[in-house]
Computed example of a mutant assay.
Amino acid sequence: MFLATPQATAKTILIVEDVDLNFLLLQKIIERTAHFQYTIIRAKNGKIAVDYCSECGEPDLIFMDIEMPIMNGIQATEHIKRRFPEIPVVIQTAYTSEENREKAQKAGSNDFITKPIRKEHIASILSKFIPVVS
Rank of each mutant, 00 (worst) to 15 (best):
M1A: 05
L3F: 06
P6Q: 13
Q7C: 11
T9N: 08
T9K: 15
T12V: 08
I13R: 15
I13D: 15
I15T: 15
E17K: 03
L21E: 05
F23E: 00
F23R: 00
F23M: 00
L25H: 12
I30Q: 00
E31N: 03
E31A: 04
R32M: 09
A34H: 10
F36A: 02
Y38W: 01
T39Y: 14
I40D: 07
I41M: 05
I41R: 06
I41A: 05
A43N: 05
K44L: 14
K47Y: 09
V50Y: 01
V50H: 01
E55L: 13
E55P: 11
E58F: 09
D60C: 07
L61V: 04
L61P: 03
I62P: 02
M64S: 08
E67M: 14
P69C: 10
G73L: 08
G73E: 13
I74Y: 03
Q75G: 06
Q75I: 07
A76M: 04
A76E: 06
E78L: 03
H79T: 05
K81G: 08
K81T: 15
R83C: 02
R83N: 15
F84D: 11
E86W: 10
I87W: 08
I87V: 09
V89G: 06
V90A: 02
I91Q: 02
I91V: 07
Q92W: 13
A94S: 11
A94T: 03
S97W: 08
E99Y: 08
E99M: 13
E102M: 12
E102L: 12
K103Y: 02
A104I: 00
G108R: 05
G108I: 00
N110M: 07
N110I: 10
R118K: 14
A123L: 04
A123D: 03
S124M: 12
S127T: 15
S134R: 14
S134K: 12
